[in-house]
Simulated assay, not measured.
Amino acid sequence: MKTNGMRLTVSVLALVASGSMALADSMDDLVAAAKKEGSLTTIALPHDWCGYGDVIAGFKAKYGLEVNELNPDAGSGDEIEAIKANKGNTGPQAPDVIDVGLSFGPSAKAEGLLQPYKVSTWDTIPDAAKDADGYWYGDYYGVLAFEVNTDIVKNVPKDWPDLLADDLANSVALAGDPRSANQAIQAVYAAGLSAAKGDASKAGEEGLKFFAELNKKGNFVPVTGKAASLAQGATPVVLRWDYNALADRDTLKGNPPVEVVIPATGVVAGVYVQAISAYAPHPNAAKLWMEYLYSDEGQLGWLKGYCHPIRFNDLAKNGKIPADLLAKLPPAEAYEKAVFPTLEEQGAAKEVISKQWDTVVGADVAK
């Protein structure tokens, strides 16, 4: 998923002093140790996801290491199982690193499957998106956005209440079933967070109330919104992760024109996290991979793939984001309000939304 303009050696030495890096005592030593290992084994990294193809190529070119890529289409659960299945294996089927959904980080830590490591840019990663002990850390995220077909929708909604407008009858769709799909659950949560004025404890309940009103008014379309249904006009407004919406905008090439809007309130971020296997056959290569991903270069690699780097606010504040990349995104200030729900908040909202959708909203979302 990504060089850092800062001098890494001092930071890395500081990590050594804190015990975070056991196998290398400077950045130069880390690079040397990784090269001695010779390779890195990854898993579940499709090249078209968040620009991973270019990120992997950049890492290989920078450090001269081979990257052994296992099962690019695996899911987070498969990655965890791969660590478990290869605890005593130092061969090519044992992953060194994983990239998983947020909830998988704490559970993998609890099972003893991860080892701690704090990258040199650690302090610029939001606290809510990382384990305090360094066992897992968010790397990129999307925020829930409105993907709008502007051939059909002339008054483009700017915030959640705007979706209730009379001219959006039979227009608004979720990108999944909120009884089971995380993206859809998070969209309902985001609408509820807006209605509850930021009170996470009420977001699930308020989100259901909002969608009940949206459905009663006739604006909600109970099908899974996709690029095709957006283009055809069946779902001219789709609520989905911004990086999916932005990729659709490119794919559709103006036919129809697509506007991607980050809502004014209820800006909810969905995080994917990185971690190093406790049984990594190439632990130094794994740490070097993490240094690369969290460097400026690595973080901008995500941005090129429309995934929001976890260090976005820090990069923007320091003028590190190229103008051409920013031009392809909604305004930077739109992301400054992004909320990173805690695991507890996510779990509570999921429980309410998935189990009460039928009784409160009563719309059966079709695939």
Rank of each mutant, 00 (worst) to 15 (best):
G105C: 11
D96L: 10
N149T: 06
P116W: 06
A108W: 06
K87H: 05
K87E: 14
Y141Q: 03
V153M: 05
G142H: 10
I125E: 07
F146K: 00
T90N: 14
Y135A: 08
A74N: 10
G91W: 04
K84Q: 14
T121P: 00
G101T: 13
N86K: 10
T150R: 02
W122T: 05
Y135T: 09
T124H: 12
T150M: 03
G134E: 05
A74S: 14
V143N: 07
D123Y: 04
A110S: 15
D96Y: 12
N149F: 03
N155F: 03
Q115M: 14
Y141N: 11
I80K: 05
L144T: 12
W122Y: 11
Y137M: 15
P106R: 11
D139Q: 13
T121Y: 02
A128W: 04
G101E: 12
Q93F: 04
D139C: 09
G112L: 08
S103H: 09
G101C: 00
G77Y: 02
G75H: 03
K118R: 13
N155A: 15
D151L: 04
V148R: 01
G142F: 11
A145C: 12
S76A: 13
A110I: 01
T150Y: 02
D133T: 09
E81Y: 04
D78R: 09
K118H: 02
G138Q: 09
D123Q: 13
L114E: 07
K154G: 07
N86I: 03
E147Y: 02
D73H: 11
A128K: 15
Q93A: 12
G88T: 13
V143G: 05
A145W: 04
F146V: 01
I83D: 00
V143M: 07
N89T: 11
W136N: 04
S107E: 13
P116Q: 06
A132K: 15
Y135C: 09
A128P: 05
E111F: 00
F104E: 12
D123T: 13
L113M: 05
N86Q: 11
F146L: 05
T124F: 11
G112I: 10
V119A: 09
S103V: 12
A145E: 06
S120R: 00
G134T: 04
S120Q: 06
G88V: 00
I125Y: 06
I98K: 03
G91P: 02
Y137R: 14
K109N: 07
D139S: 14
I98F: 07
G75C: 00
F146D: 00
Y135F: 15
G75T: 08
D73R: 13
G138S: 08
G112A: 09
A94V: 01
A129Y: 04
N86C: 07
Y137L: 14
K154F: 04
V153F: 02
A145M: 06
K87D: 05
T124M: 08
A108Q: 04
Y137F: 13
T121W: 00
K130H: 12
G112Q: 08
E81A: 14
G91V: 03
Y140V: 04
G134S: 06
P106M: 05
